[in-house]
Design a protein around this nucleic acid. Structure first.
Lengths: 216, 216
DNA sequence: AATCCGGGAGAACAGTTGTTAACTGCATGG
DNA sequence: CCATGCAGTTAACAACTGTTCTCCCGGATT
């Protein structure tokens, strides 16, 4: 049996993390499919062969990066989508939250945006899977909302998907807006807010023409 | 002077096209940043050094691929977005058109989706530039629409951007839905239609709470 | 008919890559 | 306290990369 504690295990996880960090940094200028095993170990300062003690391949490392980038983001969903409040205020808070996350973890965001449609199948699928989880969670959160009364499960999920995709788009827009240019950031915020607002308006009037409303 | 015609020029453009085609095919399983010059020439059947007669680097070839993938798509915009008709019908036609395009040129679509956030700067920028053109064109087309009366230029552009992004999302969804599974395709069509419909509803009620409407 | 031009071939270069094998040192469990 | 396990090292491998220089040959130009 292997204890979870101990100097040995701790050191292992430390170099493992170093590999992840180094890879993430190297990935700012290239895609995962061109990231070399030796390149990563060189950046960390260990022998190339030591890589195999932690990952079977660079693909494997990529999948681990997906978990690191998106795995810890799930709790954030509930605390953002679900709380009540006026629509306009919720939109502003969501955008602020996205901008803050991009500022805090730009490399993670870039990685996800890049590898979502990237050349490495397992990584692509891991991301899709995480995003599907997000969609399901957002769907649940939306279901608890008063504005979702009368909505079919199908419609709720399509709206959730719309929101999740929009989050990614907004995040990648913030990523491209240099942190040193507050004007660009503000422009992105403005446009993103309007888009979310339009979706919100569409949501409010979604059932207007339905039989359930009686008119038509 | 170099004549535009002649056996010589024709043959050159032929191998150039062969390079583009081979690259596009190789890119189905990897990203551009990992595509090797030799890899491409090997697939075409010419010496590695001959590559330089056509492109200065793989990056250069990538930019050319962007032009090939998106350049010829601009005329399609007007003929899709602008023609009048009932909203529901326009949505169905747009989705059909996207599905058809993905079926006809899957590799091109995959390339754009992949390299839009990919690791090669010049290619990324070329794509962004083309998409910006699309946004402007869609914006113009929307401006001529009766439903856009009273809309500010800013709002029109944010809606256009929303549409363009949505087109890409839908296209990449079709790409992932195997052409051999009509059920998956149908599911994508259904969800995409609902999303476009919701955006359309939001568009119709966008100005509802505005002073221009007199109320509130 | 003679010349020129340029797409392509060939060889060679210095580096790089992933992966193997056999090793060393040290924290760990009995 | 000693034997074991395992993170990390060193050396070596065949294969591959982008790029340079030199050459060749056939269509184009005069």
């Amino acid at each position: 049996m292997s204890h979870t504690s101990g100097i040995r295990q701790a050191q292992k996880q430390r170099t493992r993390q170093a590999l992840l960090d180094a890879a993430l940094e190297l990935l700012e200028g290239q895609s995962l499919s061109s990231l070399g095993l030796r390149e990563v170990t060189r950046a960390v300062g260990i022998a190339p062969t030591a890589f195999y003690r932690h990952f079977r391949s660079v693909e494997d490392l990529g999948v681990a990066l997906v978990e690191e980038a998106l795995g810890s983001l799930h709790p954030m969903i509930r605390t953002t989508v679900s709380p009540a409040g006026e629509g306009e205020e919720r939109i502003a808070r969501a955008i602020e939250l996205i901008a803050g996350h991009v500022d805090a973890h730009p490399a993670h965001v870039r990685f996800v945006a890049r590898e979502r449609h990237g050349g490495v199948r397992p990584v692509r699928e891991a991301i899709q899977q995480q995003l599907a989880r997000f969609t399901a969670e957002v769907g649940e959160a939306l279901a608890g909302d008063a504005e979702s009364a009368g909505w079919s499960q199908e419609d709720l999920l399509m709206l959730a998907q719309l929101y999740v995709d929009q989050m990614l788009i907004i995040a990648s827009l913030f990523l491209e807006a240099p942190a040193s240019a507050p004007e660009a950031r503000e422009r992105v915020s403005k446009v993103a807010a309007r888009q979310l607002r339009l979706i919100h308006v569409g949501r409010r009037h979604w059932l207007d023409g339905t039989d359930a409303a009686g008119n038509r």
